[in-house]
Design a protein around this nucleic acid. Structure first.
Lengths: 339, 339
DNA sequence: TTCGAGGCGTCAATATGTGACGCTACCAGC
DNA sequence: GCTGGTAGCGTCACATATTGACGCCTCGAA
C-alpha cells in the first residue's frame, strides 16, 4: 500500500475511527488503525491531529489513563453530505412511528441522526411562521402497546456480540422466576415481535436455540470468547419451523369477502396486497374483495378488528372461526347484561 | 467574523454544503456560502478544493452548464463518527418496520444512512458465520396494507416547500376525478395516516385548509413565491377539531375488562399504557384489566381484533357497540350459511 | 526506586496551499 | 459573427502549514 499523507484524508479517517461516547479508543490503537489503512505517521503527528480535531469537534479526551482515550460526545453526529429537508423530515416522521414500536434503548441508537435532523429543521425555521414540530403529525393506525423496556447497555452488548460472534455472559431472570441465573450465551439471532425483543441463543454446549427476552436481562457482558456457531441456523428457518408458535406456510389461500363502502374506499388507496381485486359496492352498499393471502394470525386479527365492515365468504375455516368468536361474545355480553 | 483559512475546516464545510444527487450547487454559490461562514477564498482555490474532493468522494460535476454544478452521488452518506454496530442494526430493524408503513418515496430519503449501515455490517461479517441479514428479523404485530405510492419528487417538493414557506404549483387529481386540475397550494402541514400521506394546504386566497393525498399529485413544483401563512394554524389543532373525522377528546375514560390467560401474559410484558392495572386469572381462567384510556377508534379496533380473548365490562357504550357488531356478524353468517 | 510508554515543546526541512496573473471556452445580446 | 462578461484552468512565486526528530517530563507498574 502506498504511504498516504494527505492530512485531510487522514483527519476524516480519524473522525470515523473515533467511537461515540460509551466507546473509547487509545491513541496508540488509532495509530495502528491508521497504519492498517496506509497512513504511517509518528505518534507525535497523531497527537497533534487529535488536539486539532478536538478543538473543532465535540471530542472528549480521557487523560486519566495513560495512553489517552478519545471519544465523541454522546449523541453527536455529522453526516457528510449534510442532511436535506426531506431526509430530516423523514427521520422525524419515522421516529414518531418507531417510539411506539421499538424500546427506548433501541431508539437511543438513533439519537445522533435525530439530533442532526432537528438541528437542520431548526436552522430552516429560524425566521419562520410556526415551527416544523407543529407541521408534521402521524395518526397511528393501530393501538400500540408499550414496548417492553430494557437497558441500553444490554442492547449494545447483544448487538455487538451477535455480529462479532462473541459469547455473552448474562444474568437472566426467567419468566415467573424471582431469582436470576447466570448463563453463557452463544447469540444466533435477534427477533422483535409484538414490542418484545428476543435474543435467540444457545447455552453452554447444548444445541437447542432458546429465546431470551431482552427485558429480562439483569446484566450482560460481551466476552472475548468466540461463540459456538450452529450449523445451518437462520432466524428465518427458526421462525418458519414454528419457533414463535406461528407456522408460516408458504402457500396462499384465496380470501373472498363482502366489504362496506368505507372499507372499499380505503382498500382502493391502500390495498391488502398486489393480488387484491375489488368490485365497487352495488346498491346494497356492499362491494367485493378477493385476494391471495397467507394463512396468518395477523390477517385474522385484522379481519376481526374490522367488525361488521367485512363479511368473509371464503375460506370456510375463517368464517367458522369468526362466527364462533362472535357467538361467544354475544352469549357472554347478553348473559352478563342480565345480572 | 475573523477570516478563517484552515483547509481541513473548509473542506469539511464544503462537503456539507454539497447536496445529494437531485440537488446541485454552482461553484460561485459555494463561494458565497463559504464567505457567509467566514471563509473568503479565491474562486481558483475553491476550484482546486472541488477537484481534490471529487477525487476522494463520489462527487459528480455537471460541466454542461457554465458555472459548473456539483453534487454527491445519490444514496451516498458518510457519518462522523462512523456508525457503530447497534446504530446500524437499529436502522436495519427500523427499515423492516417502516417499509410496511411509509411509502417507498419517503423511505428513499433514508437510502444514504441505510447504505452506510449495510456497509458497516458487511465489513464486520466479512469473515464470519452466516450473514447479519439472516440474524435479525421482525414479526409484524399487525396486518399492514400497502402504503399508497407516490413519486419521490413530490415528497421532495412538498417537504421542501412546507419548511421553506414557499407555495407549490401542483397538478392534482381529485378522488374519483379523471382529469387533474392545476392548483397553487400554500402548504401548512403534513399528516400521515393509515399509510396515506396528506398535505394540508390552503388554495389561492381562501382560508379553508384542504387535504391533498400525495399519491394523487400528478406533479408538483416548488415556487419562489412565499406561501400565505394562516394565523394560529397547527396540525395538532386541525386534527383535534375533527379534520380527520376523529374527535380526539382530551379526557380519559376507564376501561375495565376480563382478559384471557394469554392476553394477561402479553399485557404483563407490554402494557396498554402506564395506568394499566392487572389482576391475575383466577380458576375460571379470566383475569381483570383496568386502564385509563382515551375514547379512540384505534383502541376500539384493538378490542375488536382480540375477539373472544377480552370481555369489556366498562364503559357501557363499548359493550353495546361490541355486542351490536357481534350480533350483526352472527346474524349475517348464520343467514348466509343456510343458502 | 527504576524503567518504559506515551504526552508534549521545539526546531528545521520540506511539502502544501494560496492569490495573482493570463489564457481559453462558452454563452448571450447586438 | 462580433463582443463582453463570466468562469474554468495552467502556472508561478510566495507564504504557511505539516512533519519527523529529538529531548524532556509525567505517570504508573514492577
Amino acid at each position: 500500500m502506498p504511504r498516504k499523507t494527505d492530512p485531510l484524508q487522514r483527519s476524516l479517517l480519524l473522525l470515523q475511527l473515533i467511537p461515540r461516547h460509551p466507546g473509547m479508543i487509545a491513541t496508540t490503537t488509532l495509530q495502528e488503525k491508521l497504519k492498517d489503512r496506509g497512513f504511517e505517521v509518528t505518534l507525535r503527528t497523531l497527537q497533534r491531529d487529535m488536539n486539532g480535531l478536538s478543538m473543532q469537534f465535540p471530542i472528549f479526551c480521557d487523560e486519566s489513563e495513560r495512553p489517552h482515550r478519545w471519544c465523541f460526545d454522546k449523541g453527536y453526529s455529522h453526516s457528510l453530505p449534510g442532511m436535506d429537508t426531506n431526509e430530516a423530515l423523514t427521520l422525524v416522521l419515522a421516529k414518531q412511528y418507531l417510539t411506539s414500536l421499538l424500546p427506548a434503548a433501541v431508539l437511543d441508537s438513533l439519537a445522533g441522526p435525530l439530533n442532526e435532523a432537528h438541528k437542520h429543521l431548526d436552522s430552516i425555521q429560524a425566521n419562520g411562521h410556526g415551527s416544523w414540530q407543529s407541521k408534521v403529525r402521524l395518526l397511528p393506525a393501530h393501538q400500540s402497546l408499550v414496548p417492553a423496556r430494557f437497558n441500553a447497555d444490554v442492547w449494545h452488548v447483544v448487538t455487538d456480540a451477535l455480529l462479532h460472534h462473541h459469547a455473552i455472559e448474562a444474568r437472566y431472570r426467567k419468566r415467573n422466576n424471582e431469582e436470576p441465573d447466570d448463563y453463557l450465551l452463544h447469540p444466533q439471532g435477534i427477533v422483535h415481535r409484538h414490542s418484545v425483543t428476543y435474543l435467540l441463543a444457545t447455552v453452554k454446549n447444548y444445541d437447542d436455540v432458546l429465546q431470551f427476552a431482552l427485558h429480562r436481562f439483569e446484566s450482560a457482558r460481551e466476552t472475548v470468547t468466540p461463540f459456538r456457531p450452529l450449523a445451518n441456523f437462520s432466524v428465518e428457518s427458526y421462525i418458519r419451523n414454528g419457533g414463535f408458535g406461528l407456522l408460516q406456510s408458504e402457500e396462499t389461500i384465496t380470501l373472498k369477502a363482502l366489504i362496506s363502502r368505507e372499507l372499499f374506499v380505503r382498500l382502493q388507496e391502500t390495498p391488502l396486497n398486489e393480488s387484491q381485486v375489488l368490485t365497487a359496492p352495488d346498491d346494497t352498499g356492499w362491494g367485493l374483495m378477493t385476494a391471495q393471502v397467507r394463512d396468518e394470525q395477523t390477517l385474522f386479527w385484522w379481519l376481526q378488528s374490522l367488525g361488521g365492515a367485512i363479511r368473509v365468504l371464503a375460506p370456510q375455516q375463517w368464517r367458522d372461526e369468526l362466527l364462533r368468536q362472535a357467538k361467544e361474545l354475544v352469549g357472554w355480553y347478553e348473559a352478563s347484561e342480565k345480572t
